[in-house]
Amino acid sequence: MVVNKTGSEYIVEHLTNWSVGKGFWTLHVDSWLVSAVLGALVFGLVYRGARNATSGVPGKLQNFVELLYEFVESQVKIVFHGKSELVAPLAFTIFVWVFAMNAMDLLPIDLLAVLGLHMKVVPTTDPNTTFAMSLSVFVLTIYYNLKVKGAGGFLHESAAVPFGIRLAPVNILFRLVEDLAKPLSLALRLFGNMYAGEMVFILIALLPFWVQPLLSWPWAVFHILIITLQAYIFMMLTIVYVSMAHEQH
């Protein structure tokens, strides 16, 4: 840490976004930039592996991309039984992108500050990023609900499940809570995990320098698990929500 700052100043500095604009029209440049650049890098790499994909003996990059493909495809096959060209690419994008963004957590916490950039480097510690994904998924589930069941079927399901049509108000209330809880929990779970993880790194950075490696190393190792796990959970729940939208009650 930089010596001439109090602990709270240091923490606040590390948890403040690099912002442009005022009020609702504030843009978090760091979240947007980092996620966009990561997206371009990672998906550029994936595209390189996929573009020249052959059915013969695959190269190393193609092999890796195929591994990801098989992983996502198998998960989708287990949960989702409808017909959709979107679900698997959606799950793939979420897993890869969230993983890449989470992985920024492993960058040394003061690295960018030393370079003169005061920003949050982990886009998933910004609720705007996580809500952007969860709300997109939410809109998609509503779209699939309407597409598969029709407007009438969707309304009927909302009113009649689970207690029958006579208790329609209760059912609708339940349904509202259930549907609203989905994007909320999806976004906040990822945000909370990454934010807390980053916070722990910051707190470790406040300790005397000779303690820091003893704590930040195990935490970073543990975080490799968290990074992967959160990306996986986000992907799985997306598949589950979309497949629930496809199911007729």
Partner: peptide, 11 residues
């Protein structure tokens, strides 16, 4: 804030 929309577009 508006970052939400920006991130949605990226996504």
């Amino acid at each position: 804030n508006v970052s939400l929309i920006g991130q949605m577009v990226t996504f």
